[in-house]
Design a protein around this nucleic acid. Structure first.
Lengths: 150, 150
DNA sequence: CAGCTTGAGTTCCTTGAGGGAACCTCCGGT
DNA sequence: ACCGGAGGTTCCCTCAAGGAACTCAAGCTG
């Protein structure tokens, strides 16, 4: 499958997909985020092929999303989120919000989140970083930016 | 490639990936969102194989993200976002935010967004739907929900 | 009416990524 | 010296992505 190169496109969505666009990567980040940081843990939890897991981890490390570091004198490694990777978890939280709302069905969401600041079970909402008002697709106008394609 | 079935997992991230987890789908939604709604337009803009585009569109329609509807007496169709699909665009906006910050490089972001409410060039930020304070991965505790795996 | 055009797919072939299982290697413990 | 476990690597097989050619229906053109 000669996959199209998304990283070259003049689009931040395509570029982001070049980093985590293949379906295992978000699940790897989810697991790393909750403390499943080792190869064997990830493989067992996800049921992913060891070969593919190796590829994904290398890819995520190469893109600066994860950091591979030893945790023993033996050759043992764990994968931890970098700052760049931690900010990607925002994306996961939005996926959770959408999946909980539209795909959970009668059983309800599999996981709930309690917000530290208010102590309530809640979910994320998109706001404008400038004025704090809600900011969805219909609330913005796109303009050509400095990095626009020629 | 006998792909793993993400839809069956008790995880809203995996379920969401089952719907838009393959890398073309977010780009299709992006295009549909900005008015490229017809088969030929999508194919030309994305450079995607016609076969794969057909598969993706059918998949997105089957999952209620897009609606296929005729726009002529001839057999001509356009794809429009449903409410479910429109809410998925939030995910794209978060991807844009991350890509702009971490992947745009020296050229800067390819597209800027002006927020209607304040008129400023801005980007999205995650807030708690309950109290309005910032809500990121480190600000929440996960709890087992009603739909948790047995 | 015959023929052309256009949008929207469908078919077919080739390539290569994902799955799965077996294998390898390094190192500390006994 | 042997065992065992973490962290991969190698191998083969299958099936999805790419790409180009083909089809089909409806309107338009002369």
């Amino acid at each position: 499958m000669q996959r199209t190169n998304f990283g070259e496109m003049a689009c931040s969505i395509a570029r982001t997909l070049d980093v985590i666009g293949e379906p295992w990567s978000p699940l790897i980040l989810r697991d790393v985020n909750v403390g499943l940081t080792r190869f064997e843990q990830l493989q067992a939890d996800l049921g992913i092929s060891r070969k593919v897991l190796t590829e994904r981890l290398n890819h995520l490390v190469a893109h600066g999303v994860l950091e591979r570091r030893p945790y023993d004198r033996r050759p043992r490694f764990e994968y931890v989120l970098t700052e760049k990777g931690t900010e990607l978890v925002d994306l996961l939280m939005v996926m959770v919000g959408w999946g909980d709302k539209w795909l959970a069905g009668e059983a309800g969401p599999p996981v709930l989140y309690r917000h530290h600041a208010c102590g309530q079970i809640s979910h994320v909402e998109l706001r404008c970083a400038h004025c704090g008002q809600p900011m969805h697709a219909s609330d913005v106008d796109p303009l050509a930016g400095p990095g626009a394609a020629t």
